[in-house]
Design a binder for these strands. Structure first.
Length: 547
RNA sequence: GGCCGGUUGGUGAAAUGGUUAACACACACGCCUUUCACGCGUGCAUUCACGGGUUCAAAUCCCGUACCGGUCACCA
């Protein structure tokens, strides 16, 4: 019996050859420096902010080199796959401006000539290559049970030996073809392992675009390439897919760096040209319990999930700007010099990407958000807030959208100037900033009821003039009638006056808005209009009388 | 524990052997101002994890130590 017989017995239904696939998926016809890369998530329903970062960076590199950016779904772990996982990923990333040239476009359809782009649909391809390796004697079936593997691990740990299925520990490696065939015929379901040709004592130099040269021992582990369910492991699928889909660069999280020797070995044994690798440093935070730095965790940190930003109404444009800031050390400076350009115009360079993991800084993000929102027009902000409220605050949505023009005028307060306000950092902040401009939401609980409402009624009825540009001069003038004077005068002789103009304004602001801090009083009064302001003043008067 | 990587202020970081270690965020104070926010200004690392070495000269090169991170699955 030969390896060929073993391979046929293992994969009786595989009839294609590896040459067939080389023909089906020819080399791409692109510029020599074009970057073909991919985003390859598992459809688990959760998108990590670090994954967004990798996707964003990958998309940027391919775009700036006229390359290809495609989506590949890694659903070989059937236990973790969820039903609408694919559309969740596509829609989730689209919101953050990440789109693909090839790959699935919804749960059932794909575009591109290098598909299928869903790994579970590529089973035959992986098995063809696995069969090929078995035929060459470069891979073999392993019948060890999980318990046996566990047992080996325990012994190794006990003896302080290196852990893993390798060398003399790799029992099934030395099984004869006949023995293997017999087990298969008896119905045992093996995994397929690589017959590693690596020597642990040999160092290999791996090149990473971000980290430079990294030295590793060669891989001598007989890693599993096909699981007992017939699907490939990540390592094997990576090699097959990225070769056949003709990726030039593998841009991924740094948790993969230590498997680089395995991947390089796989490419070599399969006769594939090696792609280039770029491992992105993890996004971290300080663990409150230990005080140590650690990777942003799906379970512990809400900000690790992309949905967090969606739910709080954090502008996706700002998130992307922040990620670019972290990803490339020269981005911020570039953005300051090119205020009119989009993030997508920035040219990324691997040499500007950090080798060490950055602490995820929500303060910095918040600052970017505020700056970003301050650049929007009232109408742009209105539309974004509307979209947000529709999903998360139905009650306010109704009130907010009842009169678009009015809401826009509210959002426009101190917006149309050279120095626009920067007090809104996320769409969920808007309510707190504007609610008092809507009568149905204005229910002030006054704590200070000693203000002179009649004085302000007098002002609104006889002194307030919307049209005047010299609003402040006018109100200052009027306030004199009640013995409120300018700051300067008041400071010189505090005992002679009732108060200063600042106090006069503060009182009016407080009654009309229920708050001590608001944007421009003048604009608020103008938008509210005489009638509604008087109503609020009279209401205050009533309340203070009653108390 | 093995292997690999990282270490410049509270945070992100620049600097690639040669003046007072950029810039941004945060923080503090001041100015401006009807409040707040904005804007403007000032301050915030006597020093680049630590120890040694090379050099006229080191955050930058070399060696060692410490700490932190990642990884060691039929998960990706």
């Amino acid at each position: 019996m030969t390896n060929k017989d073993l391979a046929d017995l293992l994969f009786p239904n595989i009839n294609k050859t590896i040459e067939d696939y080389e023909t089906i998926y020819p080399k791409r016809n692109l510029d020599t420096d074009a970057i073909v890369t991919r985003y390859a998530p598992s459809p688990t329903g959760f998108i990590h902010i670090g994954a967004l970062l990798a996707a964003f960076v990958g998309g940027a590199f391919s775009r700036q080199t006229n390359g290809v950016f495609y989506l590949r779904i890694e659903d070989t772990d059937t236990k973790r796959t969820i039903d609408n996982g694919i559309s969740l990923i596509i829609n989730g990333l689209k919101e953050f401006g990440v789109t693909f040239d090839e790959g699935p476009i919804d749960d059932n359809n794909s575009v591109g000539n290098y598909g299928p782009y869903i790994q579970s649909e590529r089973k035959e391809i992986y098995q063809t290559y696995a069969k090929h390796l078995v035929e060459l004697g470069l891979a073999y079936p392993c019948f060890c049970s999980e318990e046996e593997i566990e047992n080996i691990r325990n012994i190794q740990a006990h003896r302080k030996a290196r852990i893993g299925y390798y060398g003399e520990w790799a029992k099934c490696r030395s099984l004869s073809i006949e023995e293997a065939c017999e087990k298969i015929k008896k119905g045992e379901k093996p995994v397929i392992r690589l017959r590693s040709n690596g020597d642990y004592d040999n160092k290999i130099i791996c090149h990473d675009e971000i980290r430079g040269e990294v030295a590793f021992p060669e891989n001598d582990l007989d890693i599993v390439i096909i699981k007992s369910d017939g699907l490939p492991t990540y390592h094997f699928a990576h090699a097959i897919d990225d070769h056949l889909m003709r990726s030039t660069h593998i841009i991924r999280g740094d948790e993969w760096l230590s498997s680089l020797p395995i991947h390089l070995q796989l490419f070599d044994m399969l006769g594939f040209e090696r792609p280039k690798y770029a491992h992105i440093s993890p996004l971290s935070k300080i663990d409150e319990e230990t005080g140590n730095m650690r990777k942003l965790s799906k379970r512990k940190d809400p900000e690790a999930a992309m949905s967090y930003y969606h739910e709080l109404g954090i502008p996706y444009e700002a998130v992307v700007i922040y990620l670019a800031t972290i990803a490339s050390s020269d981005f911020e400076e570039w953005m300051m010099q090119n205020p009119d350009k989009s993030v997508n115009d920035f040219k990324f360079d691997f040499s500007r990407m950090s080798k060490s993991g950055a602490l995820f800084d929500l303060d910095k993000l918040n600052n970017i958000c505020k700056n970003y929102i301050s650049t929007l027009t009232a109408k742009e902000l209105y539309d974004k807030v509307k979209t947000y409220l529709l999903e998360y605050d139905e009650d306010f949505y109704k009130i907010f959208t009842e009169d678009e023009e009015y809401s826009c005028s509210v959002l426009n307060i101190e917006r149309n100037s050279k120095k626009p306000r920067k007090d809104i950092g996320k769409y969920s902040d808007v309510y707190e900033n504007v609610y008092y401009m809507y009568d149905s939401l204005f229910e002030p609980k006054y704590e200070n009821l000693s203000l002179n409402a009649d004085m302000y009624i007098d002002y609104i009825e006889n002194g307030f003039n919307v049209e005047t540009e010299n609003w402040f001069n006018d109100i200052s003038e009027f306030a004199r009638k009640y013995n409120y004077v300018s700051m300067k005068e008041y400071k010189n002789n505090p005992l002679e006056y009732t108060g200063n103009i600042s106090e006069f304004c503060e009182g009016l602001r407080y009654i009309v808005t229920g708050k001590t801090q608001t944007p421009s009083l003048q604009e608020i009064l103008t938008i509210l209009g005489k009638e509604r302001v008087l109503k609020r003043l009279n209401n205050y008067k009533d309340i203070s009388k009653r108390s």
